[in-house]
Design a protein around this nucleic acid. Sequence first.
DNA 1: GATGCAATTGAGACTCATTCTCTTTAGATA
DNA 2: TATCTAAAGAGAATGAGTCTCAATTGCATC
Lengths: 149, 149
Amino acid sequence: MKSDDFKNFLSKRGLKMTRERQELYLEILKFDNHFDVDSLLFQVKNRGLKTSKATIYRTLQLLMEAGLIRNISLSVSEAHSPRYRVCSKLRAYDHLICTGCGKVIDFDKQEVCKTCHSVTAEHGYKLEAHSLRVFALCPDCQEKGLTSC
Amino acid sequence: MKSDDFKNFLSKRGLKMTRERQELYLEILKFDNHFDVDSLLFQVKNRGLKTSKATIYRTLQLLMEAGLIRNISLSVSEAHSPRYRVCSKLRAYDHLICTGCGKVIDFDKQEVCKTCHSVTAEHGYKLEAHSLRVFALCPDCQEKGLTSC
DNA sequence: GATGCAATTGAGACTCATTCTCTTTAGATA
DNA sequence: TATCTAAAGAGAATGAGTCTCAATTGCATC
C-alpha cells in the first residue's frame, strides 16, 4: 500500500493513521506534480469526502515532516498562493518556473549542490537545504507574446 | 542626490517625486541591507514622518519596478514575514540564510548564472531571473546548539 | 461489547500582511 | 484664484494560514 510510508511515520510518532489522513494522502498522490491547497480541497470535496481546511493544513504539515511532500514557493513575490507539491523520488530542489503560465519543471543539477556546499563551507555554516528557482518564459508563452506577469 | 534614480524613473512614467516618496526612499537607503515593512514603518514614524501603510506599499511597489529594491523570501515555508531588501550594486540574487537566527549573507556565484542559462536553454525558455536560497546554520547558532527552527 | 482517555476532527473565529476604496490634500496649470 | 488630477491617508476588506474548543474517534483495557 502506498500510504505505508505515512503510516510508519505516524506510528513512530505515536500518531494514528486515521481515515481522514489516509484519504487525504491518497488524493494527494493522484496529483502527478504540484498542487495547491485549493485544488486539493476542491478534489476532496468533489469525491464527497468531508474535510475541513484545518485538517488539510494539519495533514500537509505532517506529510512534510514525514518527507513525503515538500513546500515550495513558485512566485517571485511571496505574497500570494504558496503551493505544496508531492515529493518525487528524484529529490529535486530546483525549479524552472514559467512567469507566464506558472508551469513548473523540476531539475536537479549537481553544480548547484556543489555551490551550496562551497558557500556554506566558506562561511562556516552547516548546510541544511537549498532552493533554486529559475524564472523564465516558456516557449508557448513566448509565442503568445506574453511578457512576464 | 541619491534619490535621482528614483526621480528619473518616476518622471519617465509621468509620475511625481513627492515629499513622501523621497523621504521613504531616503529612509530605505539607511538600511544597509535587508529590512521588512514593519521596521521601515517604525523607523519612519520614529522620525516624526506621517505615512500610511498604503503609501509604503505603493512606494515599495514603485521602487521594485524601478529596480531599486528587490523582494526576497527568507523562509523555507513561505507563509510568514516576507521582506524587502535594498538592491545593492552587486546584484546578488543568491542568499545564504541562517535557519537559526535568520541572518542573511548575499553572494554571487557565476556558476549559478551559468546553470540557469543552461537549464533555460535546454527547455527553450527565456531566462528572466533566478533566486537561490541556501538554508544553513551559522557558526553562532551551531555553538548555541540550535537546530533548525 | 462497554469504558476511559488521549488523539483527532470540523467549523468557524482569528491573525496579520497586503490590497482596495473612498475621501481629502497638494501641486501644477489655465 | 479656480480647476484638475495624481497622490496620500484612514481604515475596511481580503485571503492564506492558524487557533480554539466542543464533539468524535480509535484503541487499549476491562
